[in-house]
């Protein structure tokens, strides 16, 4: 009984999220006014901004988890950082795509080296690299350590990237004055978007956790004496040691 209730939680969560997305989608289509100069394409903005903000939040989670890993050396933190990076890359990709669609209709080009687009691109690159290097490092501890250091450095780099893209000539709208229904819709979009980001993060994290426990009996197994011999699958010394 209890376990069925727990199993229901994700289903309820995702149904709610989907429902809310439908609701805010309807708001955009039926309720918000058409923007004077941009037309309907401006409506992409309701998706674009929450996505962008959640990208930053995900990057921040990567950063915090990375710092914690360096300090505590528990793979728990690495699994969290990995999950957050996946969310960050997914959202950053969507930010880039929506930005490109917007730019296509505003300036007539899919791509311009405008500060914001350049910034999104570099941010996307920074975290795609994070995801790509992980599978190429075999030892879980080395992978976690290299990823963690990269997670810290990449996040420190973000404000610098932002400032340096400011040096490029700008044609991006600085601030748009929003009519009240526009503001409402924008705020409403944050709700399902936050649910989506948090849901993906948790799902991904649990998957990572299960994987690291399955693949090699995780740290916690050591506490349980009975599983020790099962967890020990032959000699496993790293010849280069763990200096790095």
């Amino acid at each position: 009984m209890n376990s069925t209730a727990i199993n229901l939680i994700p289903r309820v969560y995702w149904t709610l999220t989907a429902f809310l997305f439908a609701a805010v989608g309807a708001m955009v289509i039926f309720w918000t006014p058409r923007e004077a100069t941009m037309g309907d394409v401006q409506k992409i903005f309701y998706v674009h901004l929450p996505l962008a903000i959640h990208t930053f939040l995900a990057c921040f989670v990567v950063f915090v988890a990375s710092v914690m890993y360096v300090l505590q050396r528990r793979l728990w933190w690495d699994d969290l950082a990995g999950a957050a990076a996946k969310v960050a890359v997914l959202f950053a990709s969507l930010v880039l795509l929506t930005g490109m669609v917007w730019g296509r209709s505003a300036w007539g080009h899919w791509w311009t080296w405008s500060p914001r687009l350049t910034f999104s691109l570099i941010l996307w690159l920074l975290y795609v690299v994070y995801l790509m290097i992980r599978p190429s490092i075999e030892s879980p501890q080395k992978r976690a350590m290299i990823s963690a250091v990269y997670g810290v450095i990449a996040f420190l780099d973000v404000p610098l990237v932002y400032l340096s893209t400011k040096l490029l000539p700008d044609i991006h709208p600085e601030s748009i004055s929003l009519a009240p229904p526009m503001k409402m819709t924008l705020l409403a979009w944050f709700v399902p978007m936050t649910l989506l980001a948090a849901g993906l993060l948790i799902a991904r994290f649990r998957l990572n956790r299960r994987r690291s426990v399955l693949e090699r009996g995780a740290e916690e197994d050591l506490e349980d004496d009975r599983t020790e011999d099962a967890a020990y699958a032959g000699p496993h010394l790293t010849p280069a040691g763990e200096i790095a």
Binding site: Q141, R216, E219, L222, Y232
Partner: peptide, 12 residues
């Protein structure tokens, strides 16, 4: 003394 490397107990 216990030592775990890569989630594997090496010394117990």
């Amino acid at each position: 003394v216990h030592k775990v490397i890569d989630d594997r107990p090496v010394l117990r």
